[in-house]
Write a protein that binds this DNA or RNA. Structure first.
Length: 155
DNA sequence: GCCAACGTTGGC
DNA sequence: GCCAACGTTGGC
């Protein structure tokens, strides 16, 4: 069982979008970064938990929790030239990109903002707050996980 | 294999 | 909208 943080721009896809999906479940498509892909492909497991993080917005923050409910499988949006994340270099017989299914678990009453996280000395090693980290999928340690839940008033 | 040019991410 | 920090691409 591992913990993760997954970023999404709320204007594009927010935690409310995920919550309003049928069965509160959706696929996490559009990852086009090898490091992020490798995390999904090699390390993510069904039953893992992930923070939903709103990025590139007025108040960047961890806004809730979701569960990984599938293994990694090919991201079909890479094969469709009409798709934003189309990749002509991804061969359907040997897919370059993968995605996982995620299920909404909870939305925090109080989001834990990036500013809040940066203000916590104990979280200064979090990959999220290290200089210039643009990875959209990041591992979170159990200690960091519990700390942020506490900050959200969820424990 | 190097590296300049270019594109993207994401905080501010 | 700006810009720093990266990741990727492609010429050589």
């Amino acid at each position: 069982m591992a913990y993760w943080l997954m970023k999404s721009e709320p204007d594009v896809y927010s935690i409310d979008h995920l919550r309003s999906e049928k069965r509160k479940t959706d696929h996490w498509d559009g990852i086009r970064n090898y490091q992020a892909r490798n995390f999904m492909r090699d390390q993510m497991q069904k039953g893992d938990l992930a923070f939903f993080y709103h990025s590139n917005c007025a108040e960047p923050a961890v806004v809730g929790v979701m569960e990984i409910v599938s293994e990694a499988y090919p991201d079909h949006t890479a094969f469709d030239s009409q798709e934003k994340y189309f990749d002509a270099g991804s061969d359907p017989d040997n897919p370059r990109w993968v995605m996982v299914d995620v299920k909404f678990k909870k939305k925090f009453k109080t989001p834990v903002t990036l500013a809040d996280i940066k203000a916590q000395k104990k979280l200064s090693d979090m990959r999220l707050v290290q200089r210039g980290n643009r990875l959209s999928i990041l591992p979170v340690t159990p200690v960091e996980w519990r700390h942020i839940l506490k900050m959200a008033g969820e424990s």
